[in-house]
Protein backbone atom coordinates (compact mmCIF):
# COMPACT_ATOMS: atom_id res chain seq x y z
CA UNK A 1 0.00 0.00 0.00
CA UNK A 2 1.46 3.33 -1.00
CA UNK A 3 2.01 5.97 1.54
CA UNK A 4 0.80 8.55 -0.96
CA UNK A 5 -1.92 10.76 0.32
CA UNK A 6 -4.33 12.48 -2.02
CA UNK A 7 -4.95 16.01 -0.99
CA UNK A 8 -7.53 18.45 -2.16
CA UNK A 9 -6.37 20.78 -4.91
CA UNK A 10 -6.84 23.78 -2.63
CA UNK A 11 -4.67 22.46 0.13
CA UNK A 12 -2.20 20.54 -2.04
CA UNK A 13 1.40 21.33 -1.22
CA UNK A 14 3.76 21.58 -4.16
CA UNK A 15 7.41 20.71 -4.31
CA UNK A 16 9.72 22.64 -6.65
CA UNK A 17 11.90 20.75 -9.13
CA UNK A 18 14.98 21.60 -7.10
CA UNK A 19 13.69 19.25 -4.42
CA UNK A 20 14.25 15.90 -5.96
CA UNK A 21 14.47 13.23 -3.31
CA UNK A 22 13.61 12.56 0.30
CA UNK A 23 17.05 13.75 1.42
CA UNK A 24 16.44 17.13 -0.23
CA UNK A 25 13.14 17.41 1.62
CA UNK A 26 14.85 16.54 4.87
CA UNK A 27 17.52 19.18 4.21
CA UNK A 28 14.86 21.77 3.38
CA UNK A 29 12.91 20.82 6.47
CA UNK A 30 15.97 21.37 8.64
CA UNK A 31 16.59 24.70 6.97
CA UNK A 32 13.03 25.97 7.38
CA UNK A 33 13.04 24.86 11.01
CA UNK A 34 16.22 26.85 11.59
CA UNK A 35 14.71 29.86 9.82
CA UNK A 36 11.54 29.49 11.89
CA UNK A 37 13.58 29.33 15.07
CA UNK A 38 15.58 32.40 14.04
CA UNK A 39 12.45 34.41 13.16
CA UNK A 40 10.65 33.36 16.34
CA UNK A 41 13.66 34.39 18.39
CA UNK A 42 13.72 37.75 16.59
CA UNK A 43 10.02 38.21 17.24
CA UNK A 44 10.47 37.55 20.94
CA UNK A 45 13.62 39.60 21.36
CA UNK A 46 12.64 42.54 19.24
CA UNK A 47 8.87 42.51 18.93
CA UNK A 48 8.75 46.16 17.81
CA UNK A 49 11.17 45.77 14.94
CA UNK A 50 10.45 44.16 11.60
CA UNK A 51 11.79 40.65 11.13
CA UNK A 52 15.05 40.23 9.28
CA UNK A 53 14.93 37.21 7.06
CA UNK A 54 18.15 35.17 7.23
CA UNK A 55 19.90 33.90 4.11
CA UNK A 56 17.94 31.06 2.61
CA UNK A 57 18.68 28.52 -0.11
CA UNK A 58 17.36 28.59 -3.64
CA UNK A 59 15.30 25.47 -2.95
CA UNK A 60 13.56 27.18 -0.06
CA UNK A 61 12.96 30.29 -2.12
CA UNK A 62 11.41 28.24 -4.92
CA UNK A 63 9.27 26.34 -2.41
CA UNK A 64 8.01 29.55 -0.87
CA UNK A 65 7.26 31.02 -4.27
CA UNK A 66 5.57 27.91 -5.58
CA UNK A 67 3.30 27.56 -2.56
CA UNK A 68 2.79 31.31 -2.16
CA UNK A 69 4.01 31.32 1.42
CA UNK A 70 5.06 34.41 3.33
CA UNK A 71 8.02 33.31 5.43
CA UNK A 72 7.56 36.03 8.00
CA UNK A 73 4.09 34.74 8.70
CA UNK A 74 4.32 32.29 11.58
CA UNK A 75 1.24 30.31 10.62
CA UNK A 76 2.35 29.90 7.03
CA UNK A 77 5.78 28.80 8.21
CA UNK A 78 4.19 26.23 10.47
CA UNK A 79 2.03 25.05 7.55
CA UNK A 80 5.12 24.73 5.38
CA UNK A 81 6.91 22.74 8.07
CA UNK A 82 3.93 20.44 8.51
CA UNK A 83 3.59 19.99 4.78
CA UNK A 84 7.26 19.17 4.40
CA UNK A 85 7.09 16.67 7.25
CA UNK A 86 4.07 15.06 5.70
CA UNK A 87 5.73 14.99 2.32
CA UNK A 88 8.85 13.47 3.79
CA UNK A 89 6.84 10.70 5.39
CA UNK A 90 4.04 10.08 2.95
CA UNK A 91 5.00 11.29 -0.52
CA UNK A 92 5.34 8.47 -3.03
CA UNK A 93 8.85 7.69 -4.13
CA UNK A 94 9.87 7.06 -7.70
CA UNK A 95 13.27 5.59 -8.41
CA UNK A 96 14.74 6.34 -11.82
CA UNK A 97 17.85 4.47 -12.87
CA UNK A 98 20.05 5.73 -15.69
CA UNK A 99 23.07 4.25 -17.44
CA UNK A 100 25.06 7.39 -16.74
CA UNK A 101 24.85 10.01 -14.03
CA UNK A 102 22.28 12.61 -15.24
CA UNK A 103 22.98 16.31 -15.20
CA UNK A 104 20.98 18.30 -12.62
CA UNK A 105 18.97 20.00 -15.35
CA UNK A 106 17.87 16.69 -16.78
CA UNK A 107 17.03 15.35 -13.35
CA UNK A 108 15.01 18.49 -12.58
CA UNK A 109 13.24 18.25 -15.92
CA UNK A 110 12.21 14.67 -15.26
CA UNK A 111 11.13 15.46 -11.69
CA UNK A 112 9.01 18.32 -13.02
CA UNK A 113 7.41 16.04 -15.59
CA UNK A 114 6.67 13.40 -12.96
CA UNK A 115 5.09 15.92 -10.59
CA UNK A 116 3.04 17.45 -13.39
CA UNK A 117 1.87 14.19 -14.88
CA UNK A 118 1.99 11.56 -12.14
CA UNK A 119 1.93 13.02 -8.65
CA UNK A 120 2.56 16.61 -7.48
CA UNK A 121 4.52 15.57 -4.46
CA UNK A 122 6.38 12.62 -5.85
CA UNK A 123 9.94 12.23 -4.61
CA UNK A 124 12.53 10.91 -6.97
CA UNK A 125 15.63 8.85 -6.27
CA UNK A 126 18.25 8.80 -9.03
CA UNK A 127 20.16 5.56 -9.51
CA UNK A 128 23.01 4.47 -11.74
CA UNK A 129 23.25 1.18 -13.63
CA UNK A 130 25.57 1.15 -16.69
CA UNK A 131 24.30 -2.28 -17.77
CA UNK A 132 21.05 -0.82 -19.03
CA UNK A 133 23.09 0.92 -21.77
CA UNK A 134 20.64 3.73 -22.33
CA UNK A 135 17.17 4.95 -21.45
CA UNK A 136 16.01 4.49 -17.88
CA UNK A 137 14.24 2.15 -15.50
CA UNK A 138 11.41 3.69 -13.48
CA UNK A 139 10.42 1.99 -10.26
CA UNK A 140 7.10 3.21 -8.83
CA UNK A 141 5.81 2.00 -5.47
CA UNK A 142 4.29 -1.09 -7.03
CA UNK A 143 5.77 -1.53 -10.47
CA UNK A 144 8.95 -1.42 -12.48
CA UNK A 145 8.78 0.22 -15.88
CA UNK A 146 11.80 -0.68 -17.97
CA UNK A 147 12.47 1.93 -20.64
CA UNK A 148 16.08 0.87 -21.12
CA UNK A 149 17.89 -0.03 -24.32
CA UNK A 150 18.70 -3.40 -22.81
CA UNK A 151 14.98 -4.11 -22.62
CA UNK A 152 14.59 -2.94 -26.22
CA UNK A 153 17.33 -5.32 -27.31
CA UNK A 154 15.67 -8.11 -25.39
CA UNK A 155 12.31 -7.36 -27.00
CA UNK A 156 13.85 -7.23 -30.45
CA UNK A 157 15.85 -10.41 -29.90
CA UNK A 158 13.59 -12.53 -32.12
CA UNK A 159 13.80 -10.01 -34.94
CA UNK A 160 17.56 -9.81 -34.53
CA UNK A 161 17.92 -13.60 -34.68
CA UNK A 162 15.66 -13.63 -37.72
CA UNK A 163 17.78 -10.96 -39.38
CA UNK A 164 20.99 -12.83 -38.58
CA UNK A 165 19.57 -16.10 -39.91
CA UNK A 166 18.43 -14.33 -43.07
CA UNK A 167 21.89 -12.85 -43.51
CA UNK A 168 23.49 -16.28 -43.01
CA UNK A 169 21.05 -17.85 -45.47
CA UNK A 170 21.90 -15.20 -48.06
CA UNK A 171 25.57 -16.13 -47.78
Amino acid sequence: MSKAVKLDDDTQFGLPPALIGRSDVSRLLREIEEVDYALETQAIRTPDQPLTIPAISRALKETLTLNNIEITNLNERKRLIDSLREAKETAPNVQITFAVDPEPAIASFLVKWIRENLHPRALVTIGLQPAIIGGCVVRTPDHIYDFSLRKRFKDEEANLIQAINAAIARK
Binding site: S2, P92, T140, Y145
Partner: peptide
Protein backbone atom coordinates in the same frame (compact mmCIF):
# COMPACT_ATOMS: atom_id res chain seq x y z
CA UNK B 1 19.70 12.78 -26.69
CA UNK B 2 17.81 9.98 -24.96
CA UNK B 3 15.27 12.32 -23.34
CA UNK B 4 12.77 12.24 -26.24
CA UNK B 5 12.80 8.45 -26.14
CA UNK B 6 12.48 8.38 -22.33
CA UNK B 7 9.66 10.91 -22.33
CA UNK B 8 7.88 9.08 -25.13
CA UNK B 9 8.05 5.83 -23.20
CA UNK B 10 6.97 7.45 -19.95
CA UNK B 11 4.15 9.23 -21.74
CA UNK B 12 2.99 5.90 -23.10
CA UNK B 13 2.96 4.43 -19.59
CA UNK B 14 1.69 7.55 -17.91
CA UNK B 15 -1.72 6.28 -16.89
CA UNK B 16 -0.60 3.01 -15.28
CA UNK B 17 2.20 4.86 -13.52
CA UNK B 18 -0.18 7.54 -12.33
CA UNK B 19 -2.61 4.93 -10.99
CA UNK B 20 0.27 3.22 -9.29
CA UNK B 21 1.35 6.48 -7.62
CA UNK B 22 -2.15 7.23 -6.34
CA UNK B 23 -2.80 3.85 -4.80
Amino acid sequence: DQMPFILREMEAQKEPMRRDMWL
